[in-house]
């Protein structure tokens, strides 16, 4: 029981702190969640985290909230999901309530703007770091198909602006077909 309350407390405060420090929405909080739950707490492994990101990405609603629900559910079931959602929603609720009282002054504040410009560059570096780490795990498989999927979906997202859900569905089908082929023609998946 003591172990339980400890986990719950850790879940809540982890997501609370992440949400309170995350400027710029979904894609920024995902690297931070990965760092916290994969590398620091070892509650979720790297492959599983990528699956959870794909689910968070392709479900309706804010990505940060979706990812929080998935992590909470994974660690402690439905009560865990409730806690992580609360932890994710509370910081913006409190901060925006305060900001709405004097938002004109906040928007025009020079120091806030300077910090913002610096932080945007910092956030870009954080995302780059995550892409490199995740890309490395794909390359380490030493297979052509995953690399091909990566490059094709990059072009599809970046230059052709194809709907993200469509891409995720297609890649899922390609992966399933690949597994099916390996199962029936090579006698098992590696």
């Amino acid at each position: 029981m003591k172990e339980n309350t400890h986990t719950f407390r850790k879940l809540f405060w982890s997501t609370f702190k992440l949400s309170a420090c995350t400027f710029g929405g979904g894609f920024v909080i995902i690297p931070l969640m990965r760092q916290k739950f994969v590398e620091e707490l070892h509650w979720i492994d790297e492959q599983e985290m990528m699956d959870l990101i794909a689910i968070a990405q392709s479900s309706p609603g804010p990505i940060a909230v979706n990812a929080a629900i998935l992590i909470g559910y994974r660690v402690a079931g439905a009560p865990g999901a409730l806690l992580t959602v609360l932890g994710t929603v509370l910081p913006p609720l409190v901060i925006i309530s305060l900001v709405s009282l004097f938002y004109q002054a906040f928007r025009d504040n020079a120091i806030v703007n300077m910090a913002m410009m610096g932080m945007t560059a910092g956030v870009a570096a954080v995302i780059c770091d995550v892409v490199l780490t995740m890309g490395m795990t794909i390359l380490k498989q030493k297979r052509v198909l995953p690399v091909l999927v990566l490059l094709t979906s990059f072009v599809a997202v970046r230059f052709l602006h194809i709907n993200i859900i469509l891409i995720i569905l297609l890649c899922g089908i390609v992966g399933a077909a690949d597994a099916f082929y390996q199962l029936h023609h090579k006698g098992g998946i590696q």
């Binding site: 492959q47 995302i127 995550v130 490059l151 599809a156 399933a176 597994a179």
Partner: peptide, 26 residues
């Protein structure tokens, strides 16, 4: 196995999407 295959297929796509968002931010 089939679900694992599907999940393995979309992992590279996730990396590609984050990469694209990262480039927009840069």
């Amino acid at each position: 196995t089939i679900v694992q295959g599907a999940l393995a297929g979309l992992r590279p796509a996730v990396v590609a999407m984050i990469a694209s968002a990262g480039i927009s931010l840069i």
